[in-house]
Measured scan of single mutants.
Amino acid sequence: MDSLVVLVLCLSCLLLLSLWRQSSGRGKLPPGPTPLPVIGNILQIGIKDISKSLTNLSKVYGPVFTLYFGLKPIVVLHGYEAVKEALIDLGEEFSGRGIFPLAERANRGFGIVFSNGKKWKEIRRFSLMTLRNFGMGKRSIEDRVQEEARCLVEELRKTKASPCDPTFILGCAPCNVICSIIFHKRFDYKDQQFLNLMEKLNENIKILSSPWIQICNNFSPIIDYFPGTHNKLLKNVAFMKSYILEKVKEHQESMDMNNPQDFIDCFLMKMEKEKHNQPSEFTIESLENTAVDLFGAGTETTSTTLRYALLLLLKHPEVTAKVQEEIERVIGRNRSPCMQDRSHMPYTDAVVHEVQRYIDLLPTSLPHAVTCDIKFRNYLIPKGTTILISLTSVLHDNKEFPNPEMFDPHHFLDEGGNFKKSKYFMPFSAGKRICVGEALAGMELFLFLTSILQNFNLKSLVDPKNLDTTPVVNGFASVPPFYQLCFIPV
């Protein structure tokens, strides 16, 4: 009986604490739906499609509103004006990374994606500088992407125009580009180590996009005490870190300090320079996690976009025909596509942009946080508050993009057929937390897609009208449904 009384008292205290925290903070924060004790607004949000729920709530509470995930307040920004004001106009104040408990377990605050403060700034600055020195957006990395595009075309030829699921092959190409940047090595598509790495990356994007992960991140005790797919994700990350550590040891034994070959060499050189400046942010643990982040951000996002792009091109054969006509006119058949071609191919450029806009790969991006107490639109948001960005509300804005739910390359073309930029184009987020590999991803999408369409016609196994382009999961990332196609050599 005594234990029951204690339990009831504990629960009562928890409920009172929950109510007090919510009521004391709500006077400062933007308005929002009334949260339930302990669980907050979790029942009012469709976990399978958070973005749709945010759109519905914005119609009631406006472009800036507050939700509670458990006891934790989260300020939501919906629509271009609110997102721009926060991420661009007040970029420094909104540059923090929001709480992501599962990532905390995986990387302990290291790396480039989930770190904060001085650690994040130094690692991000170093990573950007190193990638630029190796030619991100310049010639040397373009050579690597072109080489991988040629290998991709050869792998597709091996399908002999038979029906195939493109998931694996389209994942190999961007993964190999990242391998060449980090390890100075590309792998054969049949290499077992490479296959294991690909498998872990593919599993992780599916797990991260599941409703279960949303629950884990908002009720963090689940991570330590409950079984579930989150444990598989943590094991996959541990596998990748151990693999990278092996490569780091190989580099330490063979590195030429006067001739760095890749990202690992550059990081080890930085560690050597910083060894007298303790404590340094440049450690082996930081290198492991930064490399894992580059793999995660640079492989599955690009391969998922490529997979979605081919599905949309199957669905819209008239678009595919126009792209192939432009390829034939500008590039021809006797040389590989290059980035200089893009400025002469406005329709193809528009298609690449429209694919990214339409699929809305990361509907709410990753959570941000404010780095200080900030007054925002007459609300006071306390330091450390998590900020949720609705990228969907920007990419699918119906004023900027008429009929935003329709796939239409003319969203990025003017009346004369010239490519038209849009400030609403934010597939990689915006501001200080914009994806480090934005330029690389854009290069890969253009070169891989043009190389495929230069060499193959795409054949659907069903009537294009019957192809479903609805994402199968739409949590962290929008993942396309399973499909097969035939690559018919031109």
Rank of each mutant, 00 (worst) to 15 (best):
residue 124 R to F: 03
residue 490 V to A: 14
residue 301 T to G: 12
residue 397 D to V: 04
residue 472 V to P: 06
residue 89 D to R: 02
residue 204 N to G: 06
residue 12 S to K: 02
residue 49 D to M: 03
residue 187 F to W: 08
residue 300 E to S: 14
residue 28 K to Y: 15
residue 427 P to H: 10
residue 295 F to G: 00
residue 437 G to H: 04
residue 27 G to W: 12
residue 436 V to G: 06
residue 485 L to I: 09
residue 271 M to S: 09
residue 143 D to T: 14
residue 462 V to C: 11
residue 287 L to K: 01
residue 274 E to T: 08
residue 306 L to N: 00
residue 454 Q to L: 06
residue 27 G to C: 11
residue 54 L to K: 01
residue 108 R to E: 11
residue 449 L to N: 00
residue 288 E to V: 14
residue 198 M to T: 09
residue 399 K to E: 15
residue 26 R to D: 09
residue 36 L to C: 15
residue 374 I to M: 12
residue 215 I to P: 03
residue 347 Y to W: 11
residue 343 S to A: 11
residue 146 Q to D: 04
residue 132 R to V: 12
residue 298 G to A: 14
residue 408 D to C: 07
residue 192 Q to N: 06
residue 47 I to R: 13
residue 98 G to K: 15
residue 30 P to S: 01
residue 2 D to A: 11
residue 98 G to W: 12
residue 427 P to Y: 05
residue 174 P to T: 15
residue 139 R to N: 12
residue 452 I to A: 00
residue 258 N to Q: 12
residue 271 M to T: 05
residue 257 M to R: 14
residue 99 I to M: 13
residue 401 F to A: 03
residue 441 A to P: 02
residue 51 S to A: 13
residue 244 I to Q: 07
residue 73 P to H: 05
residue 447 L to H: 07
residue 28 K to S: 13
residue 239 F to C: 13
residue 213 I to A: 13
residue 155 E to C: 05
residue 451 S to G: 12
residue 21 R to M: 10
residue 122 E to C: 09
residue 54 L to N: 00
residue 472 V to Q: 14
residue 401 F to P: 04
residue 155 E to D: 04
residue 197 L to N: 00
residue 448 F to I: 04
residue 152 L to H: 00
residue 9 L to K: 01
residue 384 G to Q: 05
residue 156 L to K: 00
residue 363 P to A: 05
residue 74 I to C: 07
residue 425 F to R: 04
residue 118 K to G: 11
residue 173 A to G: 08
residue 67 L to N: 00
residue 488 I to S: 09
residue 11 L to C: 13
residue 178 I to T: 02
residue 218 N to M: 13
residue 214 Q to L: 10
residue 91 G to L: 04
residue 406 M to H: 08
residue 78 H to V: 11
residue 31 P to T: 09
residue 323 V to D: 01
residue 37 P to R: 01
residue 192 Q to T: 15
residue 151 C to F: 09
residue 391 L to D: 05
residue 438 E to C: 04
residue 316 H to E: 07
residue 467 L to E: 02
residue 138 K to A: 11
residue 379 Y to V: 03
residue 28 K to D: 08
residue 188 D to V: 05
residue 69 F to P: 02
residue 56 N to F: 09
residue 116 N to S: 14
residue 418 N to G: 06
residue 286 S to P: 02
residue 74 I to P: 00
residue 10 C to E: 03
residue 89 D to N: 14
residue 62 G to F: 00
residue 207 I to C: 06
residue 25 G to R: 10
residue 390 S to A: 08
residue 151 C to A: 15
residue 483 Y to L: 02
residue 386 T to A: 08
residue 269 M to E: 13
residue 206 K to R: 11
residue 445 L to V: 10
residue 487 F to R: 00
residue 445 L to G: 03
residue 419 F to H: 11
residue 138 K to V: 12
residue 482 F to L: 10
residue 370 V to P: 05
residue 151 C to L: 07
residue 436 V to S: 03
residue 89 D to T: 11
residue 250 E to P: 03
residue 342 R to V: 11
residue 71 L to Y: 13
residue 464 P to K: 11
residue 259 N to A: 12
residue 109 G to P: 12
residue 106 A to Q: 15
residue 111 G to W: 05
residue 88 I to Q: 10
residue 268 L to V: 07
residue 201 L to G: 05
residue 261 Q to G: 10
residue 479 V to G: 12
residue 366 L to G: 04
residue 181 I to F: 11
